[in-house]
C-alpha cells in the first residue's frame, strides 16, 4: 500500500462523510417532501459510494471490496426505488 493510495482513500472517505452530513442537514431543513427525498437519496447513493471507494482501496483482500460494492449497489437501488414510491405516494395524496 503506497502513500498515494492512502491519500486517495482518505479523500474518498471524507467526501463520503461530507455527503452524508449534507444529506442529513437537507433531510432536517428542506421545506417539502420532494426536496427532502432528493437530499437523503443523494446522500445514500453518493456518500456511501465514496465510503465504499475509500474503504475498498484499503481492503486487504478483493473479497471485502467486492462485498462492499454489492452492498452499495443494493442500497443504491433500494433507496432509489423507495424514493420513487414515496414521491409517487405524495403525488397521489396531493391529487386527492
Amino acid at each position: 500500500m503506497n502513500e498515494i493510495m492512502v491519500w486517495i482513500s482518505w479523500l474518498a472517505v471524507m467526501a463520503g462523510v461530507f455527503f452524508f452530513v449534507a444529506g442529513a442537514i437537507g433531510l432536517a431543513r428542506f421545506p417539502d417532501i420532494h426536496c427532502r427525498l432528493h437530499a437523503v437519496t443523494k446522500a445514500d447513493t453518493l456518500g456511501m459510494g465514496f465510503l465504499v471507494l475509500g474503504f475498498g482501496i484499503r481492503a486487504e483482500h478483493w473479497h471485502s471490496a467486492a462485498l462492499m460494492l454489492v452492498i452499495w449497489l443494493l442500497v443504491a437501488a433500494s433507496s432509489a426505488v423507495s424514493c420513487h414510491l414515496l414521491a409517487r405516494y405524495e403525488q397521489l395524496e396531493d391529487e386527492q
Binding site: 443494493l74 437501488a77 433500494s78 426505488v81 420513487h84 414510491l85 409517487r88
Partner: peptide, 15 residues
C-alpha cells in the same frame, strides 16, 4: 401494486 415495486421485487426476491 405499483409497476416499479413489482419490477424491483422480481429482482430482490431471488436475492
Amino acid at each position: 401494486p405499483w409497476p416499479l415495486l413489482t419490477a424491483w421485487s422480481r429482482l430482490l426476491v431471488p436475492l
